[in-house]
Simulated scan of single mutants.
Amino acid sequence: MSYPSFDEILNLQYKLTDFRLQYWVEHDLFTWQWWLLAIMLILPWFLWYKIIPKERKAEVLSYGLLLGLLTSQMDEVGITSGAWAYPYQLTQLNRGLNPYNFALIPVFYMIVYYYYPKWKHFIIGNVVIAILATFVVEPILISMGIYKLLHWKLIYSFPIYILLPIVFRIFHYYLIEQHKMETKKSTKPT
């Protein structure tokens, strides 16, 4: 069986990058969808800045950035596997929906993380986010032509929206406890 060479793959990748850039400039840039994506990127962070107190910003931000990075990676897997696509992009730097992955979703999870330190309320808050994201925000993005489902159903997103923040809270608390233990060890007189 014959397969393409690495150089052939690179050439196709360069051509696809050129096509995407041309599409973005002619189709996306400065449309109302593009402006909406810009607002989706900026407004949640303004809200976050106003809500989260200065003394907790670093802790809450580290939790949210971890979530944003994983969300972005999962988004890339979904795009690459052909599960969904985004006909409108804020930038052409990657194929994911950056305003959603790095602003809207993480900021709302960070707000729940901050306001609900007890597990029961934290889980309830994340279920509410999951319901809103799956059954309100995603359908709106679909109706606006920003999000296109290919081989995915909205209901598949629901458990992911619930599990991600819970897993990351466990991981984040573990990291914080490890840091506290290391700090105690380093400050003990010898």
Rank of each mutant, 00 (worst) to 15 (best):
T80R: 13
M74V: 11
G64C: 06
L70Q: 01
W32Q: 10
R56T: 09
Q73H: 07
Q33F: 10
K153N: 14
S72C: 07
F135I: 03
L132M: 11
Y116F: 15
I123D: 05
L47W: 10
V167T: 09
Y173D: 14
I52C: 08
L12A: 11
L141H: 03
E59R: 15
N98P: 08
A83W: 03
Y174S: 12
R56I: 01
N101I: 02
P4W: 02
N98Y: 06
K188F: 08
S81N: 11
G78T: 00
I39T: 14
L149Q: 13
V77E: 01
M110S: 08
I142R: 11
T183E: 10
L16I: 06
A85Y: 05
T17L: 09
Q92D: 03
G82I: 00
Q178M: 12
L90N: 04
I124T: 12
I170D: 05
P159A: 01
E59W: 07
D7R: 05
I51S: 04
Y174E: 04
W24G: 08
Q13F: 15
Y115G: 09
P4C: 05
T31L: 08
L132P: 03
Y156V: 02
F102S: 01
P99L: 00
T80F: 13
N98F: 13
W32V: 14
T187A: 14
L90I: 10
P99Y: 00
Y86D: 00
A103E: 00
A38P: 14
D28G: 11
L12F: 08
L70I: 13
K15M: 07
I124R: 14
I146M: 14
K15S: 15
V137S: 10
F171K: 00
E177W: 11
L37H: 05
Y156F: 08
F6C: 03
S186V: 09
E76D: 07
F30A: 13
F19Q: 07
L93W: 12
W48D: 00
Y173G: 06
I131T: 15
R169P: 12
T134K: 08
P106K: 05
K120I: 08
V107S: 01
P99T: 04
E76P: 00
R20H: 10
F30Y: 15
E138A: 11
W152I: 00
K185L: 14
F135S: 07
A133H: 11
W84F: 11
K148Y: 12
H179C: 04
P99H: 02
L164E: 00
L12Q: 14
H172I: 01
A58M: 07
D75N: 10
S62T: 14
A58K: 13
D7G: 05
S143L: 12
I111F: 10
E59L: 12
H121N: 15
V127Q: 05
V127M: 13
E177H: 15
L36D: 01
I140V: 15
